[in-house]
């Protein structure tokens, strides 16, 4: 699900062949355009019922896109992966038991706000929905990883500074008491 600025021209990420548009006679300066875009983006963020998992802003042809991930199914375990395949995800023999919080993007996983600082969360911590639990760096952007759901961190599945792929489980939450079999 995405939410867009009204009347913004849709710009696909990485679309080919953009060249200078036929320039209109009057061209607002970049600074004021940026300010308008920033205000609109902040406005959208404030109005959205849930914080988005991704926010893309593009100034050429002005587009603001927000995306919300539907809770992703845990990544399927590679079935009997042949020895020559060397995925960067550890080939787990079995699925983690509890629900997982997964990477919404490819990038480098960081546990702390900055090098040497204490990690956002550790095993045993309770997290609330929307709480920042990590950072994924992609193309020099530090993208916050926020818990899509609350719970207790049962396991941290990725090491600090490790590359992660889309949908890769980052944290395993403890199975909630109410979910345990009677």
């Amino acid at each position: 699900m995405t939410h867009r600025l009204p009347r913004a021209v849709h710009s696909s990420n990485g679309h080919s062949g953009f060249s200078d548009q036929e320039a209109p006679a009057e061209h607002p300066d970049v600074e004021s355009v940026l300010q308008v875009v920033q205000r609109a983006a902040a406005d959208l963020l404030a109005k959205s019922p849930q914080p988005p998992s991704t926010l893309n802003v593009r100034v050429g042809d002005v587009a603001v896109e927000m995306g919300w991930n539907t809770p992703a199914a845990p990544a399927p375990a590679p079935a009997a992966a042949p020895a020559i395949v060397n995925n960067i995800t550890p080939v787990a023999p079995a699925e983690p038991a509890g629900p997982t919080l997964n990477a919404a993007t490819v990038g480098t996983f960081y546990r702390s706000p900055s090098p040497g600082a204490p990690p956002f969360v550790s095993e045993g911590d309770e997290v609330g929905p929307g709480q920042q639990i990590a950072i994924i760096e992609a193309m020099k952007l530090m993208l916050p990883v926020e818990a899509e759901r609350g719970g207790r961190i049962a396991e941290v599945l990725v090491s600090d500074g490790e590359g992660v792929e889309f949908g890769q489980p980052l944290f395993r939450l403890a199975v909630a008491d109410t979910e345990l079999a009677a």
């Binding site: 990420n13 490819v106 193309m139 952007l141 590359g163 889309f166």
Partner: peptide
């Protein structure tokens, strides 16, 4: 995915 420049570049950097 396949048109996602950031994702492709990141995958190249990571590997």
């Amino acid at each position: 995915s396949y048109l996602n420049v950031a994702a492709v570049i990141e995958a190249a950097r990571i590997t």
